[in-house]
Amino acid sequence: MMQFLAQPVGAAHYLLVGAVLFVCGVICMTTKRNALGVLMGIELVLNGANVNFIAFSQPALRADRGLALGLDGQVVAIFVIVLAAAEAAVALAIVLNFYNNHGTVDVDEADELKG
């Protein structure tokens, strides 16, 4: 542990954090039946992706400095954040509408398209 504390971290460590967030989001999306729980899973997935973008944007985190994404990575992360906010707003509106019509937010109940 102390050994690790003296070492610099690299992009790979950030990628690991991103991977854990991503996988947690995926499991959250598959296991929760509440529509808002699924939405939270999506937020986690998007954040995992964002961590990767930020990690790749910083040249000081890697040995091959020139290949870092630089500002592009950060701009993409910003677009992800903004679009996630928009997505959450629309998803929430749909969920509220669904709740108004069905009195529940259980995604398994949304099976009317089966006919």
Binding site: I81, V82, A85, A86, A89, L92, A93, L96, N100
Partner: peptide
């Protein structure tokens, strides 16, 4: 300002008094 716009998009969905009534 763009950030504030995004905020506006996110924020104004549940219009206050109506949502509370719901």
């Amino acid at each position: 300002a763009a950030a504030a716009d995004g905020e506006a998009a996110a924020a104004s969905t549940p219009s206050g008094p109506l949502s509370i009534a719901t």
